[in-house]
Design a binder for these strands. Structure first.
Lengths: 338, 338
DNA sequence: TTTATTTTTGCATTCGAAGTCATTTTTATA
DNA sequence: TATAAAAATGACTTCGAATGCAAAAATAAA
């Protein structure tokens, strides 16, 4: 196993009898090289197995060709395939994904530090909690950011979002139409912006229909937390007829808990709605009524917006909204109080 | 918004009245610098907001500090949180994940090309189909690889795997114990190595108990394909009493299809086993009997092995196996033929 | 054919940190 | 105090491709 030295542009240049600049130009698109030298260089490059060194290129061009994607572990629950969709889109634009997961462990500050040193071209943040301070750091470093399902009020940051307000209005309207009068909201965690937004809009939509001060309990977006939230609540409270869950996972947990430990059947005794439209929500045993987020459009838009900002270096924030699609499952029925 | 020029080690050196080498040494661990200059440099670096440029460092050190993780979209179904576990582990080792998804779209060759140019320190491949040719390319480039749930026969490549043979033996033994005599295997796709392995070991374990030529139908690891596989099979065949599925997703699909369209109840009429131990398999409405892969240990080991090979530059392949944990759900019961 | 114009080309420099080596400073030893 | 040994430091070079600029070659216009 001999150590094969890496082939550089100089090696190719020397072998092909041209200058290093010529080789470089051949591998840069849209630069003026004569057909003759181009072919000569390509031929020898191929023969020698030359591939331009991306790192050297990054250094001189001041651009890494990498997009940082920041996900919280939570995000994976709600949008299991968003990451792979994003990656696909980014790969199509001939850039790469540098992945960061934001857990309790590794703080946001650590991640941001890395972003600067890696000179990423842009950032897509999935449901991570970004405060104003972090946002202005991005501005200082001139790194464009697109937030996914997250907005920052008084800052101009691009974002793609599902219209939670409209989604929850649709869900609530549906429940109202079925004459529900006793509601419970099982929200996602309080430190999640998306969760707070959904909870807020659920409350708002209910209030519009005259239902104020709907009780709220908090889960952490997991199946288990949905079960736990329900069981805890039912211990001390009269059972509601409709439960609005912060995501599908918890809705599924609620359905199972109701069935298993309280002998309640969904939707006869209890109507349950979720949010996200994950695959499992459509499974026969659950068929949760929910709002499906258009992940295809959203990821595409996120990447499009980001690339646009990278290429045109303009600072205009763009915000795109999608109204999620109401999926009517089998988890909502006429109100049936005790 | 003035354009803030990036602060370099020269700037810091100049400001602190030392040489650039001194600054560099301060930011490299374990190099000899006097306490006095170290503090002086750190202070000015902090004041000026200096962070060493990772890309320049990569270029000179010939090491990117990045680990390529190659996932097939399929992998996400079976190990939804493996990616984030891997990322966590890799971040702890102060390296970064460069993500590649292997779909039908982007070929493996493309991905490999990128790996060379990015000079990744190592590669972790999740259930991707690697042929001998690709493996030897890695050897030529001296990039260590760890395969996840995948082995290449006559090549020495490190891997971490769940022991599919033992897992399927456990599942089959359990079914045998319940007197099942009519089996169906619903395998994952034929171009998946993991799927083929599981199918093979299922057949082998059945054969050991005297059941040869068990019928096999193929799905693609999705819920829907599990349903489809069952419904197609039952149209032309006598119903089996036990179904061995290539993964939990398909097992769940089978349960739903049996229930919804054939009026069969699991496990009374039909015993179903899966593989992977995904979260949904434990949900009350399914409670699939399955083999849980120890993702925690496996991801940890994958990263450990990889880092070891990167640091010590040795070429000894290491293979680690885990016998999965048998999760006895509620999807297996005494055989109950028509 | 000669001149003007455009296209190619190579030289030299740049990106920013790391590391080699020789020199200077500090510390330990006689 | 003189000398040997150790530690700290800075000048310079390196990694590999990209690019401004000037020179050279190819093409167009006169």
């Amino acid at each position: 196993m001999e150590k094969k030295k890496r082939v550089t542009s100089y090696d190719v240049a020397h072998q092909a009898g041209v200058s290093q600049s010529a080789v470089s130009r051949v591998f840069r698109p849209g630069l003026s090289v004569s057909k003759k030298t181009r072919e000569k260089v390509l031929a020898t490059a191929k023969k020698m197995g030359y591939k331009p060194n991306a790192i050297a290129r990054m250094l001189i061009t001041q651009s890494s060709g990498m997009i940082a994607v920041i996900v919280s572990s939570r995000a994976n629950l709600n949008y299991p395939d968003v990451l792979s969709l994003l990656n696909k889109r980014i790969a199509e634009a001939n850039k790469r994904v540098l992945l960061f997961t934001l857990d309790d462990a590794e703080g946001l500050e650590d991640i941001l530090d890395h972003l600067w040193t890696y000179q990423v071209d842009g950032v897509i943040a999935l449901a991570a909690h970004f405060d104003h301070n972090s946002i202005s750091q991005f501005e200082q470093h001139h790194i464009p950011v697109v937030l996914y399902n997250r907005q920052v009020a008084d800052h101009s940051v691009s974002s793609v979002s599902c219209n939670h307000e409209m989604g929850l209005k649709q869900l609530v309207d549906l429940l109202i139409k079925h004459n529900h009068k006793d509601y419970l909201i099982i929200s996602g965690p309080q430190d999640s912006d998306v969760a707070n937004e959904r909870r807020f809009f659920a409350e708002q939509a209910l209030a519009e229909n005259g239902f104020k001060d709907t009780p709220v309990v908090y889960g952490d977006y997991t199946y288990e937390s949905g079960r736990l939230a329900l069981s805890k609540y039912l211990k001390n409270h009269k059972r509601p007829t409709a439960i609005i869950c912060g995501n599908d996972n918890m809705a599924i947990g609620v359905v199972d808990e109701a069935k298993q430990n309280f002998g309640l059947s969904v939707p006869k005794d209890l109507s349950v709605v979720g949010f996200d439209g994950i695959n499992a929500a459509t499974w026969f045993s659950y068929q949760i009524t929910t709002i499906r987020q258009p992940a295809n459009q959203m990821t595409k838009a996120a990447v499009d917006i980001l690339l646009d900002q990278i290429e045109n270096k303009h600072n205009v924030a763009e915000t795109r909204f999608w109204s999620g699609e109401l999926i009517e499952g089998m988890s909502v029925a006429e109100a049936n109080p005790e």
